[in-house]
Amino acid sequence: MVKVKFFALLRERLNCNEIDVDLPAGATVNQLREKLALLHPDWTRELYDQELLCAKNYTFVDWSEPLADGDEVALFPPVTGG
């Protein structure tokens, strides 16, 4: 089980703060995204936004990053703080 969090514009568009997803062992963030798009076809466009960033356990990662049970994944648009 992986916890997925959404932030800012993405959170608003999906109307979802966070969701738990079951994944096979060794699945990547990209495979997590595929599963999310299967579960929620209406999320597909937002999930495949070219600018989307992802983090695993508070650290930026690539879409090819492998996931393990208990990981926290976050998907969000480019940051705009400061």
Binding site: A8, E51, F60, P77, V79, T80, G81, G82
Partner: peptide
């Protein structure tokens, strides 16, 4: 680096509504 890496997001509330700020 804070501007490009730290996960903060700004939403502007104006007289004509609310909008998330785009990254520069």
């Amino acid at each position: 680096f804070l501007k490009t890496q730290a996960p903060f997001w700004k939403r502007e509330e104006t007289s004509s509504g609310s909008a998330w700020v785009a990254a520069k």
